[in-house]
Design a protein around this nucleic acid. Structure first.
Length: 595
RNA sequence: CGGGGCGUGGCUCAGUCCGGUAGAGCGCUGCGUUCGGGACGCAGAGGUCCCCGGUUCAAAUCCGGGCGCCCCGACCA
């Protein structure tokens, strides 16, 4: 499992004097976050436009190492590597509806023959399309194909350096099965492969249940790197291990079970917010319910889009989880409603309630805790009045009842009841059980033992390579620069020559050759017009795991100095032992990254 | 798409309020000195001041429009 090819004839060495990609003393004013700034300063990446980056040789070597790890782990679970186009004809995506369902995030263009084309955001369509012609029989299943390919998504806002970009490299794999049990197995295989990948690149990953988003399908997990700079919020239970993205996180509440009392209208002058209402009466926000208004985009049977107001009702002390509203109602899109749009429903903002409102006026969605809690306080749809003892089912109805409230720090775990912890995370990878949505849309069928034609069950699994590298950089760095793990670092060793004397220079040159011949990957700082301080600073910044110094002083002391980037004192090693000592260090540093 | 900030040499930035010869530090080139944690001296190169238009005798600076980049939010595999 070692990254290094001791027996290979390939020699991997690079002179700093000719390295394409200089170090920067000061970070360009492009980023706030550490990994971005360091990758720029160390000469790994450069930005070409918002969210569009070039990988300079150092980053590219790291990415290829990551890619190789991914390849090995995918091959290990039966994957076959292929390569699918980045440019797709619109027809494919029209057949799965995603041409219409996805907004400007999809980059489109028209070719010279006036055909609609797009830049692929992902490759389910292409895989399903090819499966239709390549897979005919149950005997050809299960199958697993994967690629490492460029994706383009014109995000509304790219940010965070390599964390959220518009063009990026992704490993995407697609499983093909005859039934859901087969899909389940391949899904599980990916789950385990992702854990191995995390271990091999040295990145702690937390698997969380996640929303399926534009992919469709049912079950999905995201593999998260937990960090304050993460864009996603996660709910974790330290007690039982429950982990979920905030978008789908479940939690437990124990609403008070009182007997329903008669509803009555009360005067509440000026109390247009939950807080004001709580102050006015001896109640807590949990005794109230509020409505959050959205306007949803829906599709009718004719395939026409239309908008309708969505009224989401949650307890006054909780927040609405928009994703869950979207999932419950089946809305393509939800946006906050304007005051006028709310007024059209007959409800009064600040004093709104579903009581006495025509069910057709809006789509009412009620959180299950509201539905389970009798005697809540809601608006009376009249300024300065509220209703007491409102009960779901008795006083009003709803189109949907379900989990709607967003999880929060300290909420009770739905599995074990202990307190949930909220953290931030970056989504490095994900796995989806798609089902038959794409295969049905694109006619990817096979014939089973009984001779009947059935759709292929698909799964889709992604890992962002650049994002993974950025997370590794984020995890492994200090004030002086990067401290990359051996499995990801572009070279194993940086060899620094501090040669005033001609002999020292010759020794360093010879050692550069010797090390590379021994299969050690070396970045050799051969610059003769640069002071030692600069070389040390640059070496620290680039963050290769091992540093070897050959200088007039070290030779006088009897050899070369060997030191780890991440802590550890420098030690003198006789030149004849250097190859062996480095290989020992290399194995030591690689060991915890092997599985 | 809403809010905020920025755009001047390769990089970091000053100059803009109050119009009048385009600057500093770092980097780069040459020579010399230095040489184990971002050395120093001397000499030098390098700029459509984001773009277009307007005002003015005169615009980096004022006015209008556009573009780009960063951050927050909304959004999003």
């Amino acid at each position: 499992m070692s990254m290094r090819n001791v027996n290979s004839t390939e020699r991997v060495g690079q002179r700093v004097s000719s390295l394409f990609g200089v170090t920067l003393r000061e970070a360009p004013g492009e980023s706030e976050i550490e990994s971005h700034s360091l990758l720029l300063r160390a000469g790994y990446v450069r930005q070409l436009a918002t969210g569009i980056f070039s990988y300079l040789p150092l980053a590219w070597r790291s990415l290829r190492k990551i890619e190789q790890i991914l390849r090995e782990e995918l091959d290990r679970i039966g994957g076959q590597e292929l390569s699918l186009p980045v440019v797709h004809p619109a027809e494919l995506w029209q057949q799965t509806r995603r041409w219409y369902d996805i907004d400007d995030t999809m980059a489109r263009f028209v070719d010279r023959r006036d055909r609609d084309m797009l830049l692929a955001m992902t490759h389910e369509e292409a895989v399903a399309y090819h499966s239709a012609t390549e897979i005919h029989s149950y005997r050809q299943l299960p199958a697993l194909v994967y690629q490492v390919q460029t994706k383009f998504r014109d995000e509304l806002r790219a940010r965070g350096g390599l964390i959220r970009v518009r063009e990026f490299l992704m490993k995407d794999s697609y499983s093909l099965d005859r039934d859901s049990a087969g899909l389940e197995r391949q899904y599980q295989a990916h789950y385990e492969a992702y854990e191995r990948i995390g271990a091999r690149v040295g990145l702690p990953l937390t698997a969380v249940q996640s929303d399926v988003g534009m992919m469709g399908g049912k079950i999905a997990h995201e593999f998260m790197y937990v960090t304050p700079i993460g864009e996603d919020s996660l709910a974790l239970c330290d007690s039982c291990g429950y982990a979920a993205n905030r978008d789908v996180a479940d939690f437990a509440l124990n609403p008070e079970r009182t007997e329903p009392e008669p509803m009555e209208r009360v005067h509440t002058p000026g109390a247009s917010t939950i807080a004001a209402l709580s102050d006015l009466y001896e109640i807590t926000a949990a005794d109230t319910a509020k409505i959050v208004f959205y306007v949803g985009t829906f599709v009718n049977e004719q395939g026409e889009q239309y908008e309708k107001v969505v009224a989401a009702i949650v307890r006054g002390d909780l927040e609405v989880n928009v994703i869950q509203v979207q999932n419950l109602t089946g809305a393509l899109e939800l946006r906050p409603a304007q005051e006028e749009e709310i007024a059209m429903t007959g409800m009064v903002p600040g004093f709104a309630s579903p009581v006495g409102i025509d069910q057709e006026a809006a789509i009412f969605v009620v959180d299950r805790w509201v539905a389970d809690s009798p005697n809540l306080i809601m608006g009376a749809n009249k300024v300065d009045y509220h209703l007491k003892n409102v009960c779901y089912g008795r006083d009003y109805d709803a189109a949907f009842v379900g989990p709607l409230a967003a999880v929060f720090e300290g909420a009770s775990c739905a599995e074990c009841g202990k307190g949930l912890r909220m953290v931030r995370g970056v989504e490095v990878g994900n796995i989806f059980q798609l089902g038959t949505r794409y295969s049905e849309a694109l006619g990817a069928h096979f014939t089973d033992e009984n001779g009947s034609e059935r759709p292929i069950w698909m799964g889709s699994y992604g890992i962002g390579l650049g994002r993974l590298l950025a997370c590794v950089a984020e995890e492994y760095c200090d004030d002086d620069g990067l401290e990359l793990p051996m499995s990801v670092a572009p070279y194993h060793v940086t060899l620094i020559a501090l040669a005033r004397e001609e002999n020292t220079h010759e020794v360093a040159e010879r050692m550069f050759a010797t090390l590379t011949e021994a299969g050690i990957e070396v970045l050799y700082d051969d610059r003769q017009d640069v002071s030692p301080g600069v070389k040390f600073k640059d070496a620290d910044l680039r963050g290769l795991p091992l540093r070897v110094v050959i200088g007039d002083r070290s030779l006088a002391n009897g050899g070369a100095e060997l030191q780890r980037r991440a802590g550890g004192d420098s030690r003198l090693v006789p030149l004849d032992d250097l190859v062996h000592e480095i290989q020992t260090e290399l194995d030591t540093l690689l060991k915890p990254l092997c599985i």
